[in-house]
C-alpha cells in the first residue's frame, strides 16, 4: 500500500488537473458556469501553496542545521556560514520588528529598513553576480571558437558573422552584408535548430507527463 496509494493519488490528481485544463471556465454571457474540475483544481493549488509555505520552514531548518555544523567544524566555510546566519536572522529580525511595530529604523517618510537592505544591498549583490556572466561568456566563447575541427570552424565563422552583424561597423566594412547574413543565420539556421529542439523536448514532456500520470514512471517514489 505504501506504493499503491501515492501512485493512485498521482494518477487521480494528474487526470483531474488535465480535465481542468480542457474544461471551460465561467462565461456569464453564454450562461456557462465554471466546471467543477476547475474549482477542485483551484483548491488543489491552494493546498500546494500551504505545502510551499511549510516546506520553506524545512528549507531554513536544513540551512541552519548544516551551517551550524560547518561553523562548529571550523572548516573553510565557517566564516561564510557565520555571515550567512547573521544576515538571515538579522534580516528576519528587522522585518518582523518593523512589521509588528516593535522598532523602526527608518525616519518619517523613508522606506522601511527591510526594503532599504533589499534595494541597497541585496539587489546590487545580485547584479554583481549576474555581471560575472559577461566575463564567463568571453572565456567560454574563447574556448568554443577555437578552429580545431570542421564543426568548431563553422561555429567560429557563424559566431564572427553574428558579432559583425550586431555592430554598425560590421555593415560598414561588408557593405551591408553582415546584417543580412546575420538575419539569415538567426532566422533560418538558428530558428530551425531551436524549433527542432523545441519539437523534440515537447514530445519528451508529453511522454514524461503521460508516463507519470498513468503510473508507468514510478522512479520518483521511494520503496
Amino acid at each position: 500500500m505504501k506504493r499503491e496509494i501515492p501512485i493512485l493519488l498521482t494518477v487521480l490528481s494528474g487526470l483531474l488537473v488535465t480535465l481542468a485544463f480542457f474544461t471551460r471556465g465561467e462565461n456569464v454571457a453564454a450562461g456557462i458556469e465554471t466546471h467543477w474540475s476547475k474549482a477542485v483544481n483551484a483548491e488543489l493549488l491552494q493546498w500546494a501553496l500551504i505545502f510551499f509555505s511549510v516546506a520553506f520552514i524545512l528549507g531554513i531548518a536544513n540551512l541552519v542545521r548544516i551551517s551550524l555544523k560547518q561553523i562548529q567544524g571550523g572548516g573553510a566555510d565557517a566564516f561564510y556560514k557565520t555571515v550567512m546566519l547573521i544576515a538571515l536572522f538579522g534580516y528576519l529580525g528587522v522585518g518582523l520588528g518593523e512589521y509588528h511595530g516593535w522598532w523602526s529604523f527608518a525616519g518619517e517618510g523613508e522606506q522601511p529598513m527591510k526594503l532599504w537592505i533589499y534595494d541597497k544591498l541585496f539587489i546590487p549583490l545580485q547584479a554583481t553576480m549576474f555581471s560575472l556572466l559577461a566575463f564567463y561568456i568571453a572565456s567560454a566563447a574563447f574556448r568554443a571558437f577555437r578552429a580545431r575541427s570542421l564543426e568548431s570552424t563553422l561555429l567560429l565563422v557563424a559566431g564572427a558573422i553574428v558579432m559583425l552583424g550586431q555592430v554598425p561597423v560590421g555593415d560598414q566594412i561588408t557593405d551591408g552584408y553582415a546584417s543580412r547574413w546575420l538575419a539569415f543565420l538567426m532566422v533560418y539556421v538558428n530558428g530551425a535548430g531551436q524549433k527542432a529542439i523545441i519539437i523534440g523536448a515537447t514530445l519528451g514532456v508529453l511522454a514524461t507527463g503521460l508516463r507519470i500520470v498513468l503510473g508507468i514512471e514510478r522512479s520518483y517514489l521511494s520503496e
Binding site: 535548430g193 524549433k195 519539437i199
Partner: peptide, 10 residues
Amino acid sequence: MTLCSTLALV
C-alpha cells in the same frame, strides 16, 4: 531535426 523544423515552417 533541423530539416524537420525547416519543414515545419514550410
